[in-house]
Structure formats: structure tokens, C-alpha cells
């Protein structure tokens, strides 16, 4: 397993380089213009000068290696400088956003806390709710609990957040006035009061996001449990006189985790990626909102950098899932 992991990690480097090239060409090729959001009162000649000042429209064989160099050499150096107070990166050009003319990585660092708070909490909450629901639904298939769970999960999944988000805002902010409709990113949790405020402003986005994630994970959990509950080894285990708890929670559950692990591993990069629509609806202004505004403004350096960071996470977490498969089911061999 260790050699497999190392081999995959080494292989990940060319894969990621290839992915970054594909993303870069895609973005270069996609129609769009960083000047699209400028008012029409600014004449075209001026817009052209602004594009030139930004370096828009450089050929890809110049701009892509430059981006690679900045991403893999300059930005890590800046990080090292930040930690140790050294000056390796001095005078080096960092990846600069076209919208804000400031280093992309600084904005990412600024955005990460609120995204992790909201999306991360939603994920944890969702997993904690989804697993028991999925297990119990399968164990008592077609019971009232199962039916209700199915109903809520399917309705929850088919109602998109652009609607459910607004709905909870109308109920809890407008009509009841209990919760704020706009997330305050300047709030710092220092004491009990601010912690309560933070909780209050997190409830709605977390609720909306968790509903979607719970629906998805609980469905996969239930289906996989159902498959395994019918297997011969379950009958054998029960016949041996094992307690029901051990049979279900140890043997069946462990064998049913593979699809669930897959889905969760696919979801974790999206925690860092933020939840684009939910962040927009509640004005959380995290990474998801950064990505969507950058796409709308055709801010290529930001889009490219963010997408590539997600790509790294996707590759890593899929690798992690593969390793977990081997632990969950030791018969799985990769070499």
C-alpha cells in the first residue's frame, strides 16, 4: 500500500501539470473579457490600453510557463517568507488578480476562514446526520422512518439552493426576524457573545447546504447497506450468534462504506471550493463567491489559480479514497 501511495503521488505531478495546461487552454479559449464589467462610457481605446497593462492576450506559450513559475516557485517562497520572515521572494512577481490588482493567494487566504466555517461545518453536520439515517433506513427498509427519510432526502435534493436559501431567509430573517440574512465576514469570535452571533449567522447557510449533502450521502449509504444486509455472510454471522449491533455496525457497515467514502472524498475538495450559490445567497463571500465573481469578470489568473488548487485537492482526496478502499476491504489490491 505504501509503494502504491508513493507511486501515485509521483504520478500525480505530471497529471496535475497536464490538468493545469488543459484548464489554462480552456480559459484562454473561452470567450470573455476582463473589461466586460466596465461601464460602456469607457471608450474601446482606453479598454484596450487597460488590457495591455494587465497583460491580457499574451500568447499561451509565454503566459502559461510564467503562471507555472509563479504558482510553483514564487508563491511557495512567499509562504516560506511569511512563516520564517525570510526574504526569498523579494522582487518576484506574484500571481496578480486582474480585478483587484493584488496577489490572488492573499485573497484566498482571506476567504478561506469563512468558507471553512460554513461549508466545512455543513459537511460535518451532513455526514453526522446522513450516516445514521442511511444505516437505520436500510436496516428497517420500508418502515415509516425509511419512507420519511426518503421523502425528505429526495425533496431536499431536488430543491435547488437558490430557492431554499431565499425561502429560509424569508421565513427566519424577514418574517420572524431571528437570524441575519447577510453574513458578516468582519465578525471575529472572541467571546461568548460573538460566538453566539457567529452561530446565528451560520445556521441558515449550514442548514441549506447540509440538506443537499445529507440527501446525497444518506441515499448512497442506504443503498449500499441494503446490498450488504442481504449477503450470505450476514446470515452466517447471525447464525454464529453475534449480537445484532456487531453484525450491522461492524461487519455490514464496514463493507458498505466504499461508495460512501467515494462520495465524501469527492465532496471534501468542494468544501474548500465553497458552495457557489449558497455563498452568493447568504453573502458569505468565501472561495465560491471569489470563483464566481472571477469567472464573471473574466479574471483569468484568479480562476486558473483557484481551479488548479481544487484540482490538487481532487487528485489528493481521490488518492486518499483509493487508500481507504484497501483498508476497508483488504482484498482490494492495486499492485
Amino acid at each position: 500500500m505504501l509503494t502504491f501511495t508513493i507511486r501515485r503521488l509521483i504520478l500525480a505531478v505530471p497529471t496535475l501539470l497536464f490538468i493545469s495546461l488543459v484548464i489554462y487552454s480552456l480559459l484562454e479559449f473561452a470567450p470573455g473579457d476582463p473589461m466586460a464589467n466596465m461601464p460602456l462610457t469607457i471608450p474601446d481605446e482606453v479598454k484596450q490600453q487597460m488590457r495591455e497593462a494587465l497583460g491580457v492576450g499574451q500568447p499561451i506559450w509565454i503566459s502559461f510557463p510564467k503562471w507555472l513559475y509563479q504558482f510553483f516557485i514564487v508563491e511557495p517562497l512567499v509562504l516560506i517568507d511569511g512563516i520564517f520572515g525570510s526574504t526569498f521572494s523579494e522582487g518576484q512577481q506574484r500571481i496578480i488578480s486582474w480585478q483587484t490588482r493584488s496577489p490572488v493567494m492573499d485573497i484566498v487566504a482571506e476567504r478561506l476562514p469563512q468558507t471553512l466555517w460554513v461549508v466545512g461545518t455543513a459537511y460535518v453536520v451532513a455526514i453526522l446526520i446522513a450516516l445514521p439515517i442511511g444505516i437505520y433506513s436500510a436496516y428497517r427498509q420500508y418502515s415509516v422512518f425509511d419512507q420519511a427519510g426518503t421523502f425528505v432526502a429526495m425533496v431536499g435534493y431536488s430543491v435547488p439552493p437558490f430557492f431554499s436559501g431565499v425561502l429560509v431567509i424569508v421565513i427566519f430573517s424577514v418574517n420572524l426576524g431571528w437570524l441575519p440574512s447577510i453574513y458578516d465576514t468582519t465578525l471575529e469570535v472572541v467571546d461568548w457573545e460573538t460566538f453566539k452571533l457567529q452561530l446565528k449567522q451560520m445556521i441558515m447557510p449550514v442548514m441549506v447546504l447540509a440538506l443537499q449533502i445529507t440527501s446525497q450521502i444518506s441515499r448512497f449509504m442506504r443503498a449500499s447497506m441494503l446490498d450488504n444486509l442481504k449477503q450470505d455472510y450476514v446470515r452466517t454471522a447471525r447464525a454464529k450468534g453475534m449480537s445484532e449491533w456487531t453484525v450491522v455496525m461492524v461487519h455490514v457497515l464496514r463493507n458498505s462504506m466504499i461508495p460512501v467514502v467515494t462520495v465524501i472524498a469527492l465532496g471534501i475538495p468542494s468544501i474548500f471550493g465553497g458552495a457557489i450559490i449558497t455563498e452568493q445567497v447568504f453573502k458569505v463571500n468565501g472561495i465560491g463567491q471569489l470563483l464566481i465573481t472571477a469567472i464573471q469578470a473574466n479574471d483569468l489568473p484568479t480562476v486558473q489559480t483557484l481551479t488548479f488548487v481544487f484540482a490538487i485537492l481532487i487528485v489528493l482526496f481521490n488518492l486518499l479514497a483509493d487508500v481507504l478502499y484497501g483498508i476497508l476491504d483488504p482484498r482490494i489490491r492495486y499492485d
Binding site: G32, D33, M35, A36, D44, Q296, A297
Partner: peptide
């Protein structure tokens, strides 16, 4: 989409 329509990208047919 406004970002395409009002963008001056000479490569896009939709400006």
C-alpha cells in the same frame, strides 16, 4: 450572459 455580451472579446460571436 452579461459578462459575455458586454465583453469585448473579439473571439466571441456573442458580444
Amino acid at each position: 450572459s452579461a459578462s459575455v455580451f458586454f465583453g469585448g472579446d473579439a473571439g466571441s460571436p456573442d458580444t
